[in-house]
């Protein structure tokens, strides 16, 4: 526990250092209003990283989140175009449901057919994008086709923070509660930590992984609507490649790719770290090519940190080393 806590402390330190560096070149970056904007901009990444965290925790991976996001977003946009009267809460519920359904497909294939998660989600990732193409023949849904209410919802400002940002906060709180206070959360840790042992304690490993995919899918669906409404455009390739940012955020946040170790705080901080890099580098005039390299370097540094912290100390045989520990 102390190890994980300190890992989060390191991340907080890294984020503060990053902000300080950027502020020294461009003080405007750290004004409250800009920080709120950066947080809101990172909100989709935070929401998806939390879903991905649950999946990775159970020794799986969900590469289909960005495709799920794009398909759900497109479906919401098409409904809005055809039936502008459908109220936003109904659309949100629909996005959650459709996303969960796609997550359930992933989970079902992993659970019942025991296909490796990376293969399943690589397949469904392509299928989901293909379905968008079938629905639209590749055409876009543009801003002027969408209703005002549809576009306004994520931008609505409450107490200085847009709804999109608030949703990230609420999802974080809910996931925090689920992971620390429910039997389901405990099952995620148990299945990832030692699936063989989990079986004997009465946990259904496959079902637990299934539920992890449902959560991930549900959050991807929710983000789908928010994304399309915020950017006021929907097409086949939105959020292309975003699943890798999501996995990267988890890894930076200390989620063990081998399963069994993760914290909600870590995943959120990992997403924020990436989000700040993406927002800060253009401000201080770093070319987009360097941005990619810097993001990549951050991932490798984070993984190095994690593996060093997780490495066992070995046996203490020397008397003199006993107290050094």
């Amino acid at each position: 526990m102390t190890l994980l806590k300190s890992r989060e402390a390191i991340l907080v330190g890294a984020i503060l250092l990053l902000l300080a560096l950027v502020a020294s070149r461009f003080p405007g970056f750290v004004t409250p209003s800009n920080l709120v904007a950066v947080f809101t901009d990172t909100a989709p990444l935070i929401i998806l990283a939390l879903g991905q965290m649950v999946v990775i925790l159970t020794r799986s991976i969900d590469l289909s989140v960005a495709a799920n996001l794009a398909l759900t977003g497109m479906v919401c946009a098409l409904i809005n175009v055809s039936f502008p009267g459908v109220p936003v809460p109904v659309l949100v519920a629909l996005a959650l449901g459709l996303g969960a359904l796609m997550g359930a497909i992933n989970g079902f294939l992993v659970w019942k057919l025991t296909i490796p998660p990376i293969v399943v989600t690589l397949g469904t990732m392509t299928i989901f994008r293909g379905v968008i193409f079938l629905l639209t023949n590749g055409s876009w849904v543009n801003s002027h086709q969408m209703s005002a209410a549809f576009k306004a919802f994520p931008r609505e400002n409450i107490l200085g923070l847009p709804v999109l940002g608030w949703i990230a906060v609420i999802v974080t709180l809910i996931l925090g509660l689920v992971m620390s206070r429910t039997t389901l959360g405990r099952a995620f840790f148990a299945v990832g930590g030692n699936p063989h042992a989990a079986v004997y304690t009465g946990i259904n490993v496959g079902r637990t992984q299934f539920l992890a995919f449902v959560i991930s899918g549900m959050l991807a669906g929710l983000t789908g609507y928010l994304w399309v409404a915020r950017y006021a455009v929907a097409y086949v390739d939105i959020a292309g490649g975003f699943e890798l940012d999501v996995v990267a955020a988890c890894v930076i946040g200390g989620v063990s790719i081998a399963g069994g170790i993760a914290t909600v705080g870590g995943a959120v901080l990992g997403a924020l770290f990436l989000g700040i890099i993406k927002n800060a580098l253009p401000v201080i005039d770093v070319s987009p090519f360097w941005q990619l390299a810097i993001s990549g370097a951050a991932i490798i540094i984070a993984v190095t940190f994690n593996s060093r912290a997780g490495r066992s100390k070995g046996r203490v045989i020397l008397k003199s080393a006993e107290h050094a520990q």
């Binding site: 840790f189 148990a190 930590g193 030692n194 042992a197 989990a198 004997y200 069994g260």
Partner: peptide, 15 residues
């Protein structure tokens, strides 16, 4: 097949 090493003691016992 026994313990879940990354979990705290109390959570292992009550699982």
């Amino acid at each position: 097949q026994g313990a879940i090493l990354d979990m705290p003691i109390f959570q292992n016992v009550t699982l």
